[in-house]
Simulated scan of single mutants.
Amino acid sequence: MSEWQLLKLGELITLNYGKALKAEHRKPGNVPVYSSAGLTGTHDTFQVNSEGIIVGRKGTVGKVYYSAEPFCCIDTAYYITPQPEKYNFQFLYYMLQTLGLEELNEDSAVPGLNRETAYNQQVALPPLPEQKAIASVLSSLDDKIDLLHRQNKTLEAMAETLFRQWFIEEAKEDWVQGKVEDIFVLQRGYDLPSSKRIKGDYPLYAASGLNDNINAYQVEYPTVITGRSGSIGGVYISLEKSWPLNTTLFIKEFKLGTLIFSYFYLKYLDLESFNSGSAVPSLNRNHVHGLEIQLPPEKLVNEYEEIAQDWMLKVKANKHQIQTLEQLRDTLLPKLMSGEVRVQYQTEEVA
């Protein structure tokens, strides 16, 4: 590692301040707008006419995001632009994630990252060809992860489109009248304080969705989960054993409904309109159960499930692959950045 340079971050990069751009001042467009929390909307014109790295300055301190296109950066974040003579931009994006910037908060009221404090962080910088090789390894993993995520969106969209066609657009007037409770029965989730959670292989669901993976489960069959308290309207499908928290409702019994049919039926319902909380959004399962609906024929529901389950099983397999790739990337990242793991590269010839 004798060819690696030790230097201060401020010798390598410039953290530029973002500019104020309130949501009410943004105009319809396709230009991404970033805050300290990441992508936060769009606008019709850009502030930065290049790719860029965004670093949280106020609120969500030290989080690092990447924009491959011209973008806007609001005043809760810094942004960095390419300097190819100094660093490989993808390498810099990964390196910044290993510096612990999120731990450099210097404001007691609102979390804040001081620019000079960030500049004083020491970094180890390999030669440009090695930077490029390291970035190539990590970006190839991220590209595969992104591809699997996009494939899952496509597969789920196919299943949802078929659901809407068969059960909404082509619903028959002579279908039997019933209630949602004739399709499935919802139950409140289970409490589990964060202090008692141990990392494992089983998904833990909160009202806002997948929260963690732990070593225990309460529901041993595939089910559908939705927010009960704090955040309502989101619907999530678990194709394996899981632990729905007490801020959720989950389907404990399928009647006419099947797993995938019930998932898209809950998504179709306007669950936010059932909000029964004044200060904190909350969902009363009895209000959902009592909703009067037309019940589709069981044969049609089963036929739909048979078609859609192949798509959703592929989604499940993709999710497991995504988890494996993310673990590999997260394991490799600090080792590549410290030089503990090296990659082969060719020295670029100067013409």
Results as ranks from 00 to 15, higher is better:
132 K>F: 07
126 P>R: 10
103 E>W: 06
139 S>V: 06
188 R>T: 14
166 W>D: 08
138 L>W: 05
215 N>Q: 10
216 A>I: 07
202 Y>P: 08
215 N>G: 11
144 K>V: 14
100 G>N: 08
132 K>E: 14
124 A>S: 15
165 Q>C: 03
165 Q>F: 10
145 I>P: 06
150 R>A: 14
200 G>C: 06
109 A>W: 04
209 G>V: 00
197 R>E: 11
122 Q>M: 13
190 Y>N: 10
121 Q>D: 07
210 L>A: 11
204 L>V: 02
162 L>W: 08
183 I>S: 04
170 E>M: 13
139 S>Y: 06
215 N>E: 14
189 G>E: 08
169 E>C: 01
209 G>Q: 07
138 L>I: 05
112 G>V: 01
205 Y>H: 07
212 D>I: 05
142 D>H: 00
170 E>V: 07
99 L>W: 12
129 P>L: 06
199 K>C: 03
173 E>C: 09
149 H>I: 15
212 D>V: 05
96 L>M: 05
180 V>F: 13
189 G>S: 09
130 E>R: 08
181 E>K: 14
91 F>R: 07
165 Q>P: 02
171 A>I: 10
160 E>F: 01
165 Q>M: 04
120 N>H: 12
217 Y>W: 14
154 T>N: 13
158 M>R: 13
210 L>Q: 12
104 L>E: 12
97 Q>P: 13
104 L>T: 00
92 L>V: 06
188 R>F: 10
182 D>C: 03
193 P>C: 09
95 M>G: 04
185 V>T: 15
162 L>D: 13
191 D>A: 15
102 E>S: 11
186 L>I: 09
206 A>E: 03
115 R>P: 09
92 L>I: 02
98 T>F: 00
160 E>A: 07
95 M>K: 12
172 K>E: 15
